[in-house]
Design a protein around this nucleic acid. Sequence first.
DNA 1: CAGTGTAAGCTTATGGCGTAAGCCTAGACG
DNA 2: CGTCTAGGCTTACGCCATAAGCTTACACTG
Lengths: 219, 219
Amino acid sequence: MAQTRTPLTRERVLRTALTLADEGGAEAVSMRKIADELGVKAMSLYNHVANKDDVLDGIVDSTYAEIAAPTPGTDWQAQVREIAISAHDVFLRHHWAPGLQMGVKPGPGRLRYGDRLLGCFREAGFSKQLTYHAYHIIESYILGYTSMVLAYRAVDMDQFEDVLARFTRGDFAKEYPYFTEHALQHMEPEPGQEDVNAYELGLDMILEGLEGERRAEAT
Amino acid sequence: MAQTRTPLTRERVLRTALTLADEGGAEAVSMRKIADELGVKAMSLYNHVANKDDVLDGIVDSTYAEIAAPTPGTDWQAQVREIAISAHDVFLRHHWAPGLQMGVKPGPGRLRYGDRLLGCFREAGFSKQLTYHAYHIIESYILGYTSMVLAYRAVDMDQFEDVLARFTRGDFAKEYPYFTEHALQHMEPEPGQEDVNAYELGLDMILEGLEGERRAEAT
DNA sequence: CAGTGTAAGCTTATGGCGTAAGCCTAGACG
DNA sequence: CGTCTAGGCTTACGCCATAAGCTTACACTG
């Protein structure tokens, strides 16, 4: 056979793993499936990656690398908003990523992203201390809100009928009246309801609050 | 043998699973280990639970059931704050729970918790629409912030030395100056830094923002 | 009390998983 | 031409969830 096999690389392994994850979620990523996809046996992958955690760390990091840099020269709130919105988009695209955050080792993508976000605050005159806390608050909100959207989506897919039936049964509405109301809003959104982007609404509340703290510091 | 075996129940299975999770995290929960712990074979569990997902759903739901109800009669912000702080505590205690949210089917604990939180808004005069969004924002923040704390903890345990070495190396600080600063703040907190409870700080920003929206609605 | 139905155990087996250990072979280099 | 070695491959181990079918012991019926 004339064709010499194209060599495996860490790059190719990670790219394949990322595709599998995008298609079937985190649990669709196995060393065996990655290898199959590459026309190779599972153990061969270990010549290029340390182990499965290494693969997972790698693909999570690559999602962070997709998050856009803020446009320089704008004010700090605009910059943070830009980052937050881009991150939201990225994680909706890679729906498996937020669930893998726990215990992941930060790679270059993650570090660059964190550094940029922290930079927004520091360069706008936030103190070290306030920056420390602001960073935690913003990152939490970004990941939390996105995870929640994804969690809802994961349910809605499968059991739409199921869930709806549950919430239209009379005793359910009696036991959990507010939750029932809320669930029905999800099922049949009222006109205008989805026009409000709640992600940005909450984000702006935090940004406003942080601006208040910043001004209070600059006594 | 005189002793009749104490019967297995769903209750006992879930309690055992929860203990295993609290001790060793989500991955320490397997049907085999639960069975071993109960002096029984794995397959016997299936007489009382549908499958592993059922078990996981069950223990996640039981954590929601631990979240305290707000003291009635206080204003809505105090009530939401109470819920948020209790939830934070509960999830720090059950560190495996936030990572299992994705794809979990809500049980009675979850529903009661959600209903209470939604009730805080509705009974304070929030419109259906604003309640809908407020709920998403608050829940996101609670789970997001708590997950972030847990993610940091998960790393710190293992690789403290490792990480510190990385961030004190000169070129690292050059490439990611702000992140390095931040990481060092984590390693060696400055006096007064930990006095600020950033969780409540961010929470109050959101509560304040929501109060603004509420007042704007009540034109 | 004998007989029977059934709930709740047990056994066995299948197919998937990560990865340790060791083998084999094609191409690179002396 | 001969040797080295990187990068594949094979085998094997011990986990995992769970399908299918067997067995035991109690509860109730006649």
